[in-house]
């Protein structure tokens, strides 16, 4: 005989969490400078998407798109872009 397991909930507060967008808040508000992509220069090489530590860049046939809600403005994308197609600009207050 093998035992089986059944999930039965409790009403007590548990230390568990569920996946949700923005779990750490809108981290884009931490940004001091904003990366701006010139998609005419972009060759769709995906390097910015691959290297972005925040996983906020998506490259498609139109070019690279940055989710500014969560981009913290580290500038790594600017450094790894082989075509210099991304520039940092100061955030406006």
């Amino acid at each position: 005989m093998v035992i089986t397991m059944k999930l039965v909930k409790t009403e007590d507060k548990l230390p568990i969490s569920y996946p949700s967008e923005g779990a750490a808040g809108k981290t884009g508000t931490w940004r001091l400078e904003r990366p701006i992509v010139n998609n005419e220069m972009c060759t769709r090489c995906y390097l910015c998407e691959i290297y972005c530590p925040g996983n906020v860049i998506t490259v498609d046939k139109e070019g690279a798109h940055i989710d500014y809600n969560y981009c913290k403005g580290c500038g790594i994308c600017v450094k790894v872009c082989p075509k210099n197609a991304i520039k940092m600009e100061p955030e406006e207050e």
Binding site: M5, K6, L7, V8, T10, L14, I16, S17, P19
Partner: peptide, 13 residues
């Protein structure tokens, strides 16, 4: 059977 409130093998938590 065993009962428990949650399981990481059965839920994305």
């Amino acid at each position: 059977e065993r009962r428990q409130p949650y399981s990481v093998a059965d839920e994305i938590i």
